[in-house]
């Protein structure tokens, strides 16, 4: 029990634990849409793009970093769309160009005008040091916003994720819904950036959702499981980070990866044993759908 209670005697850890758990829940929640839409690369790219804005704001107006990095992220998303539409490049190539350029700009700004010390590392790999009450308020506000968007736009989001063409033909404003999702995604990355880190946010968008997908065939349950898995990874990862003395983001992602491997193993074994049982009772050519 001391192992769990001892770190809580530090105020910075209490805040870090709260933010990591909430961040994991938020990224797990939104990640369901990102994974099912095949947008994992956008999540990866946006987090890198936002780093450019984060770096610029750290140097010139650190207290406004949420605003500046948020606008930078939205500008990057618009630039990706523009490059993808106006040229014969695919969206993945456009993401590769725009977001890595933005990331490189952030690194250049840090190197030229700032320091490449702790602040730089913290932005890349996450840190629980120096989390302010304002950051916690922002995180909770974005969680409420994301929850409200999903609650009030549940069926449109589901329809546009499953079948955007038919959704459009059925009168759903697909572009508006996708824009709303991009705003939620950008804001989610922004408010979790400090504790998870730029390079690792994408992993926490993907891993809990993939774990949940392996465990259920129901969309509603997938949302719930992914949120719980994300928050559990944040919580456990924070403790391991404290005791191992490594950046919080790395441990949170490693816990997620371990959960993924365990669930993958269990579901593979279960499917394999189910197949054997069915084969015992079925004709030679019977198969079981995965």
């Amino acid at each position: 029990m001391d192992v769990l209670l001892e770190p809580l005697s530090f105020a910075f850890f209490q805040k870090g634990l709260l933010v990591a758990t909430l961040s994991g829940a938020l990224l797990g929640f939104i990640g369901v849409y990102i994974v099912l839409r095949g947008m994992s690369y956008i999540g990866h790219g946006l987090s890198h793009a936002i780093f450019g804005g984060y770096a610029a704001m750290q140097l010139f107006a650190a207290q406004l970093y949420v605003l500046g990095a948020g606008l930078w992220g939205i500008a990057s998303a618009i630039a990706i769309t523009a490059v993808a539409r106006r040229s014969r490049l695919g969206a993945d190539a456009a993401i590769g160009v725009v977001t890595t350029a933005s990331f490189a700009l952030g690194v250049a700004l840090f190197s030229k005008f700032g320091s490449s010390g702790p602040a730089f590392d913290n932005a890349l790999f996450g840190s629980i040091l120096g989390i302010t009450n304002t950051q916690i308020v922002w995180l909770i506000a974005v969680m409420v916003f994301a929850g409200a968007v999903v609650f009030f736009r549940y069926r449109e989001l589901l329809f546009t994720t499953f079948d955007p063409d038919v959704a459009r033909a059925s009168g759903v404003h697909v572009a508006r819904i996708e824009g709303l999702l991009m705003v939620v995604l950008s804001l989610s990355i922004l408010v979790t950036l400090t504790v998870i880190g730029v390079t690792l946010v994408a992993a926490m968008l993907v891993i809990p959702a993939v774990v949940a997908r392996m465990l259920t065939d129901s969309f509603g349950r997938m949302l719930a499981i992914s949120t719980v898995v994300g928050s559990a990874c944040g919580l456990v990862g924070m403790y391991l980070s404290y005791y191992a003395g490594v950046p919080s983001g790395t441990m949170i992602v490693l816990v997620g990866a371990a959960v993924f491997l365990v669930v993958l193993g269990i579901t593979t074994l279960r499917r394999h044993s189910h197949r054997i049982i069915v084969d015992d009772h079925a004709p030679a050519r019977a198969t079981v759908k995965a």
Partner: peptide
């Protein structure tokens, strides 16, 4: 995609 027949059919009512 993780949806049941009922969930899929109800997408029509948005």
């Amino acid at each position: 995609f993780p949806v049941t027949v009922m969930e899929c059919v109800l997408m029509a009512r948005t």
